[in-house]
């Protein structure tokens, strides 16, 4: 980036994220980065490489896996870790494997709680991590607008919104009582547009699923679901058809809705997003409705 007397907003956000990461690593004994393979994770990882350059970021990437991500996501994850030379820890909740928990038979709530919420707690406990970086942003939903950058979790991994620490200037309190852990959100102050802009400017690799391509899909509850492998349980009469679709957010493929789109490049995607007047936001109405339940999930230990 060019330097000048005055920094641009992205330069300020970048410098802030780097400062946060260095502070977090310096004040913890066993840090880790929660890596979800999405675009926010990609940006966070890129910022980590910048923060510690020429060193490799001094912590592992942790993927709390559900075994139900898109196959392209697994490919991207493994390639990324190998290229950067960071350790990758993949955690799959053994209880879920044993019980065969999946979104088709158990529903999204149980699937998400057992694989992700419980899985994350297990991953932190088993590896004795005392600090985890996460890619959450304050503009995502209302309860996050007031979450701290350094957020304390109890030994039971619970978030207590009443016990948040004041954060002044760029001074972060990274101290913990025994058993407590920290979640640190270096891109708290980024908006969705900032993230896309930065991906574009810095040419950060992202999973190709964000771009439109012909993909086999079926329509369910008014949205397109991709048939990514033969575990997909087709309902009676359902026949996969090929549509040009892309994904706004990436998760477990049976739970990720695609939108029809002609955006085959990053610029197209940003353009579509900026011009959207209803559709993009409507997709997020779920977030708005469940803002209180997100709060509840966080108190239970979900990210």
């Amino acid at each position: 980036m060019p330097t000048g007397a005055r920094l641009t907003h992205l330069q300020r956000l970048e410098a802030e994220a780097m400062q946060i990461m260095r502070e977090a690593v310096s004040e913890s004994d066993r840090p880790a980065m929660l890596y979800s393979i999405g675009k926010d994770s990609s940006v966070m990882l890129h910022l980590a490489r910048k923060a510690f350059f020429p060193s490799i970021p001094p912590f592992p990437l942790v993927h709390v896996d559900t075994t139900w991500k898109f196959s392209q996501m697994y490919q991207f994850r493994d390639d990324t870790a190998r290229e950067i030379g960071m350790d990758l820890i993949v955690h799959q909740n053994p209880e879920c494997i044993e019980q065969g928990i999946n979104p088709f038979d158990h529903g999204s709530a149980i699937h998400t709680d057992m694989w992700k919420t419980q899985g994350l707690k297990q991953a932190i406990d088993m590896n004795k991590f005392d600090l985890c970086f996460g890619g959450a942003r304050r503009d995502e939903e209302k309860s996050r607008a007031k979450e701290r950058i350094f957020s304390v979790r109890s030994p039971q991994h619970q978030w207590d919104p009443k016990r948040q620490r004041p954060e002044l200037w760029n001074v972060y309190n990274g101290r913990r009582s025994p058993g407590e852990t920290l979640r640190v959100f270096p891109i708290s102050n980024w908006t969705e547009l900032d993230v896309w802009q930065y991906v574009h400017l810095e040419q950060i690799p992202i999973v190709p699923l964000y771009l439109s391509a012909p993909r086999p899909v079926v329509e369910r509850d008014g949205t397109w679901i991709m048939v990514d492998d033969d575990r997909f349980q087709l309902r009676e009469g359902e026949v996969p058809e090929t549509k040009s679709v892309r994904f706004r957010t990436l998760g477990c493929y049976p739970l990720s809705g695609a939108i029809e789109s002609d955006a085959t490049s990053l610029l197209d995607v940003v353009q579509e997003m900026l011009l959207a007047t209803t559709s993009e936001r409507q997709g997020r109405l779920i977030d708005t409705d469940s803002s209180a339940s997100m709060e509840k999930k966080k108190q239970e230990g979900y990210f």
Binding site: R6, T8, H9, L10, L13, Q197, L267, V270, Q271, L274
Partner: peptide
């Protein structure tokens, strides 16, 4: 405040103008 026309006509030019904003 966001120029829809520029976004539609030349997204790259729009992003470039956006890139040099201060905070």
């Amino acid at each position: 405040a966001h120029s829809s026309e520029l976004i539609a006509d030349d997204i790259e030019a729009y992003l470039t103008s956006h890139q040099y904003k201060s905070l």
